[in-house]
Amino acid sequence: MRFVDILAKSTKQIKHHNMFKIESKDVHLHYGAFHALKGINMSIEKNTVTALIGPSGCGKSTFLRLFNRMNDLIDDIKIEGQCLLDGKDIYSKDVKIDDLRKRVGMVFQKPNPFPKTIFENVAYGLRVNGITHKSFIEERVERSLKQAALWDEVKDKLKKSAMALSGGQQQRLCIARALAIEPSVLLMDEPASALDPISTAKIEELIYELKSDFTIIIVTHNMQQAGRISDTTAFFYLGELVEIDSTKKIFTNPNDTRTQNYITGRFG
């Protein structure tokens, strides 16, 4: 074999190995006696948006929270199987939860800025991670606010309370806050469900733009939202992953009749 071929082959292997940013392998999750996730297998590529859809209680939010280990906060929980981030099991003993959460940011359903100033909200993640360098923090705050398309609206009132912002602005602030610690994955749990249509549209455009820098997983109850912003859609039902495919495929010709019935509004 020629050297070039070997080189080509090895880079291909490396590429293959790095292809999935996030993987779950046969993940089961129990809350006490309740079997919430039943053997989920999923592979998510880097720089894509994956939408998790399904009726309430289908396990999609629980699945999302596996990846920054927010489920650990719940008592009496049992997790089996593997959750991999960049090929490494995030539930292994040598992974520190706070380190993991620096790499996997999260945005919640309800905008939940801290009752602090706008600046301090964005700087929070940096401060709790021990960064004290003033100009570094300032720079990062500005960049994060710009990334979250909020800078122009708040640059003159960084010292004002975040509580004075509108709901949509608060949610973008929460996104900026999550971006400030430079995660590579962004988990979003119905980030626009508490917002008006205009704010929702802004958040959706933002997600579409953030895709180039982050790998995004989003839980949504809004089917149209999944269609508009995601590359891949996964349909959960009763704790099972019924179907995962490109969003175009799911929305035009899903394989499973349950998926079809759900996205056409015939049940769920």
């Binding site: 920054n68 927010m70 906060l73 706070d98 380190d99 959460r101 620096k102 940011g105 999260m106 919640f108 309800k110 939940n112 800025p113 801290f114 009752p115 929070y124 993640g125 401060r127 709790v128 991670n129 929460c174 806050r177 999550a178 610690i181």
Partner: peptide, 25 residues
């Protein structure tokens, strides 16, 4: 509200940091 605690923890804060910087204030 628990959402403050969750937001703080999700940013990589420890429990003590969460209490002293968010919950207690």
């Amino acid at each position: 509200d628990d959402s403050y605690r969750h937001a703080s923890l999700a940013l990589g804060a420890t429990k003590l940091q969460t209490i002293s910087r968010v919950t207690l204030p």
